[in-house]
């Protein structure tokens, strides 16, 4: 068991170090793609806490992302140091999730899904109605960094990768610890879990907050990276759906599934989007339908299945 733990952390450190070094040789385009993969992986890893471990179908990712982006962007325009704006974007989203969780985590199934879906819409409208602070529907310009284009590409990649590393480390702790076990119990039978002494509400809240904090920080980084945000962009419903698709692609409730899913989704996007410019949403739709019907447990399950068959043969 202890050896297992050490192996995991060594693999983690080596993996992150390799990721930090490799794309730098690929030029700015590769770095941009790598930054996007890292961001997607953060979103997917975060969703996995609430959607994968606790099996609560959350569509609140866009709300957390947009909220983090706006908190961070507004603070940046007020001259708050950059890193602090990201941290506060993450904490703001987490705090919001804690309150929101209190209101909607007693709902189950579809009701929870809808309630979480609607939150982003309400926030978007709120932004639209506060133009003095947030720029409203016209969007908000974020101060540019004093760096060359190449430096920026590296900077944002490493920032996003660091965020991903933190989210993955948190996931490893949760998966192996008491809280991950509690969430497994809740996933399989919430009522029975309570009777066994599991404080379901506390653990669900924890999972929901974890599904927000890194997403909020990622939103903040995204705002700095793109230098301009508007409500339609950062509260886009696809931001809530893509994490789910990535986790389904990679494998629900697994540690590496979200990362694998992030890679595949971005690869698909790059190939499909470029070739079917006007039909990219439909292409994503076809992928989703095929996934749900043929691979509901994700590609990781397919890989495991193949490995098992090889092992037997």
């Amino acid at each position: 068991m202890t050896r297992n733990v050490i192996t995991t952390w060594i693999a983690f450190a080596v993996g992150i170090a390799l990721c930090a070094v490799l794309p730098i040789f690929g030029g700015n385009y590769t770095l941009r793609l790598a930054t996007t993969v890292a961001m997607y992986a953060v979103l997917a890893q975060s969703w996995n806490f609430i959607g994968g471990l606790a099996a609560y179908p959350s569509f609140a990712t866009a709300a957390f992302f947009g909220l983090g982006a706006y908190i961070s962007a507004v603070l940046q325009t007020k001259g708050v140091p950059l890193y602090w704006t990201w941290v506060l974007g993450g904490l703001g989203a987490a705090l919001f999730a804690a309150f929101l969780g209190g209101a909607i985590l007693h709902l189950r199934g579809h009701y929870f899904a809808i309630a979480s879906l609607v939150v982003a819409e309400v926030l978007r409208e709120l932004i639209n109605t506060t133009p003095d602070l947030t720029g409203g529907g016209m969007g908000l310009n974020v101060p540019a960094l004093k760096m060359s284009v190449g430096e920026q590409a590296q900077f944002f990649y490493h920032a996003m990768l660091a965020l991903f590393a933190i989210s993955l480390a948190t996931a490893i702790f949760v998966h192996r610890g008491k809280s991950g076990f509690a969430l497994q119990c809740i996933k399989q039978n919430e009522d029975a879990a309570s009777i066994l002494g599991v404080n379901a509400y506390a653990y669900k809240s924890l999972a929901f907050v974890l599904s927000a904090v890194f997403v909020g920080a990622a939103g903040g980084m995204y705002a700095t990276w793109t230098r301009y945000i508007d409500p339609t962009d950062v509260f886009d419903v696809l931001l809530s759906v893509k994490p789910l698709v990535m986790v389904l692609l990679g494998g629900v409730g697994t540690l590496l599934g979200p990362v694998v899913g992030a890679f595949i989704l971005l690869a698909l996007e790059e190939v499909v989007w470029r070739n079917f410019l006007t039909m990219h949403a439909a292409a994503l739709g076809v992928i989703i339908v095929a996934l749900v019907l043929y691979l509901p447990n994700g590609l990781m399950s397919l890989v495991r299945e193949i490995a098992r068959r090889r092992g037997r043969a």
Binding site: A113, V241, H280, A281, G285, V286, V292
Partner: peptide
């Protein structure tokens, strides 16, 4: 084919189908 599956699955399926239909109408 998945009508008895958990919420997440059916919801995601109709979402995927909607992306296709809505995109087709846009085009």
């Amino acid at each position: 084919r998945v009508v008895t599956a958990p919420v997440l699955i059916t919801l995601t399926l109709t979402f995927g189908l909607d992306l296709v239909l809505n995109n087709a109408m846009l085009v």
